[in-house]
């Protein structure tokens, strides 16, 4: 299921503003890759280019290549909708659909895509909720609205919704920044389990979190406000946090930054 991501020479724009410049990296399948860096350095923008969500923003535009197991996501004739079915996404703030029940939220991806068998639906919902460690908490109230859950539960609901469509890659944009430490722990444990099946990319501002959950860490930085963000280095997490090869990384990690 999990697929390798191979990015080369990627540059993304918002209108005429260049947000990130010339980024190349490889994300291994069945691993967790964390993106760290100061605010505004383009981590989230880069993450959104990996499932073609960047172009949803008005004026969003991308140059360069993103290979998903040898298929260029920005190649001619590629349907962004199919790309997003392969590469799922979890957002910073939990965003369950307010008009739908918990069950419908998880089933949303399948239902809205229209390709599912009715008999399988409840199995898939149960499997996804179990996969997101939420089943025991909500199994008695699947018909209640998803917005009635707590923030941490809502975020796990969003993860369940994302994995219900069986993507190959799961992108997470600061999934724990709006959550308390206990919910954060639940989601970090979950990430550890999910990496058996998916390729996971996670953006985080929390250095300890990057150190805890990721196999590899990429450090992004920008020269100055208004300048495009760049990838400083990507390496094994252990190495990044113990002995990074670039001084800026060490400064950032040890808090001597800026």
């Amino acid at each position: 299921m999990a697929k390798r991501i191979d990015v080369s020479g990627l540059t993304a724009y918002y209108g005429s503003h260049k947000a990130i410049e010339d980024i190349s990296m490889t994300v291994e399948p069945r691993s967790v890759t964390a993106f760290i860096g100061p605010s505004g350095c383009g981590k989230s923008t880069f993450l959104r280019t990996l499932n073609r969500m960047h172009e949803v923003t008005s004026g969003g535009r991308v140059e360069g290549k993103v290979l998903l197991d040898d298929e260029d996501l920005y190649g001619a004739g590629i349907d962004p909708v199919s790309v997003r079915r392969e590469v799922g996404m979890v957002f910073q703030r939990p965003n369950p659909f307010p008009t739908m029940s918990i069950f419908d939220n998880v089933a949303a991806g399948l239902r809205l895509n229209g390709n599912y068998k009715k008999s399988e639906l409840s199995d898939i919902v149960e499997r996804s909720l179990k996969g997101a460690n939420l089943w025991n908490e909500v199994k008695d109230r699947l018909n209640k609205p998803g917005s009635g859950l707590s923030g941490g539960q809502q975020q796990r609901l969003c993860i369940a919704r994302a994995i219900a469509v069986e993507p190959n890659v799961l992108l997470m944009d600061e999934p724990c920044s709006a959550l308390d430490p206990i919910s954060t722990l639940a989601i970090e444990d979950l990430i550890g389990e999910l990496k058996e099946r998916f390729t996971i990319v996670i953006v985080t501002h929390n250095m300890q979190q990057a150190a805890r959950v990721s196999d590899r860490t990429a450090f992004f930085n920008l020269a100055a406000v208004g300048q495009p963000g760049k990838l400083v280095e990507i390496d094994d997490t252990e190495r990044i946090f113990s002995n990074p090869s670039v001084q800026a990384t060490e400064d950032y990690i040890s808090g001597r930054f800026g």
Partner: peptide, 26 residues
């Protein structure tokens, strides 16, 4: 909220279906 549109799009739902099934019901 734009987040709902993005959540739906990120699930691989086409735009017209997102509007029909997520934006309009909301």
């Amino acid at each position: 909220p734009n987040e709902l549109r993005e959540a739906s799009l990120a699930l691989g739902v086409p735009k017209w279906r997102t509007i029909l099934k997520v934006v309009l019901p909301t």
